[in-house]
């Protein structure tokens, strides 16, 4: 049983599930559970981005925009439209997918820097709408997120949201693993390695790219909704801002694009390290930058792939 699990492609998901179940017994206070929830949320968004970046080799510098759509859906739906939170979240995911589809069709033809700048524009556009439509979104100051009510009982407590986010991440991970080892996964990796060779064996490159772009937008929207629920208050910058998009990319690259656990490691570093470094006051950002640079220089493929490769070398 254990042997089968160790060789299973779902091993990262098992490890994640085990870590999620064990952490509440180790962490000394609910503050840490909140931080862990944030790690899970950003890991989920980064994992979606990794499908685009790591699997299909396409970049998006505006992915936080889709997080913003998911986050504002669960705030605006119940506040202004009287729609309960869960249908609002689903509508947010659907809207995010629709936007990704409409924007992806023209821009996914672009490559490299051009695609990067075009997706950057998409992200800025969403962020701008969220900032300017103040009567709906509260403008730059953001808005409160009504508490989720399920079966007439409000969902509350740091611990509850910790498990919700953790389970969402594990599910997202299982789906990502399924995709990687499927015909679509092979087609996407083929596109990453050689577009022209992918085309001559019959892979519809435009369609596959659009599919993975929409899927990664769905991941971001779900993560955005969770972020809104956990924080209880959202602003355009904290959900959809340019810096958030950059953070997501950094998480993927730092953690390693080639591994499912990569985005989780990247998210953990980028969420936990700033908290841990607050003791250094003014030097916080400098140390964070140095750690990131050191990681990229020493472990070029990203944390998880580089470390697993070293581990394999040692055991082999």
């Amino acid at each position: 049983m254990l042997n089968r699990m160790l060789r299973s492609r779902y091993l990262p998901a098992f490890l994640m599930l085990a870590a999620m179940l064990a952490l509440p017994y180790v962490l000394p206070s609910t503050y840490y559970l909140r931080v862990a929830s944030m790690v899970f949320v950003f890991a989920l968004a980064a994992m979606g981005l990794n499908l685009l970046l790591g699997l299909a080799g396409q970049v998006s510098l505006g992915h936080a925009g889709f997080m913003g759509v998911g986050a504002y859906a669960v705030a605006i739906g119940p506040t202004h439209l009287g729609v309960p939170a869960i249908p609002s979240a689903l509508a947010g995911v659907a809207l995010s997918c629709l936007l990704a589809y409409l924007m992806g069709r023209p821009i996914l033809k672009l490559k490299g820097y051009y695609l990067a700048v075009a997706t950057l524009g998409c992200g800025l556009l969403i962020s701008m709408v969220l900032t300017n439509e103040a009567q709906w979104t509260g403008g730059p100051d953001g808005m409160g997120v009504p508490r989720l009510v399920l079966f007439d009982a409000p969902v509350r407590g740091v611990q509850t949201w910790y498990y919700v986010c953790g389970v969402a991440l594990v599910i997202g991970m299982v789906l990502a693993i399924n995709l990687t080892f499927s015909p679509t996964g092979r087609a996407l990796r083929a596109i990453r390695d050689s577009e022209v060779a992918a085309r001559v064996v019959g892979i519809d490159v435009a369609r596959q790219k659009l599919f993975v772009f929409v899927l990664s937008a769905a991941y971001a929207a779900v993560a955005g909704s969770l972020l809104a629920f956990v924080n209880g208050h959202i602003t355009p910058d904290s959900t959809s801002g340019f810096l958030r998009s950059i953070e997501l990319i950094t998480m993927v690259v730092l953690g390693g694009t080639g591994a499912v656990l990569g985005p989780v490691a990247g998210a953990a570093i980028l969420v936990i390290l700033p908290q841990a470094l607050t003791v250094f006051h003014d030097y916080e950002h400098m140390i964070l930058g140095l750690v990131m640079m050191a990681c990229m220089i020493a472990l070029r493929q990203g944390l998880v792939p580089a470390l697993t490769a070293r581990f394999r070398e040692r055991t082999a």
Binding site: N178, P183, G185, R189, G202
Partner: peptide
């Protein structure tokens, strides 16, 4: 070489994400 089989593979993208038996 499996990627070369792409045009003969019939299962849907949704089934790929869900990891259904047919995949």
């Amino acid at each position: 070489v499996m990627a070369g089989r792409h045009r003969h593979e019939r299962t849907s993208a949704l089934s790929h994400i869900l990891g259904l038996r047919c995949v």
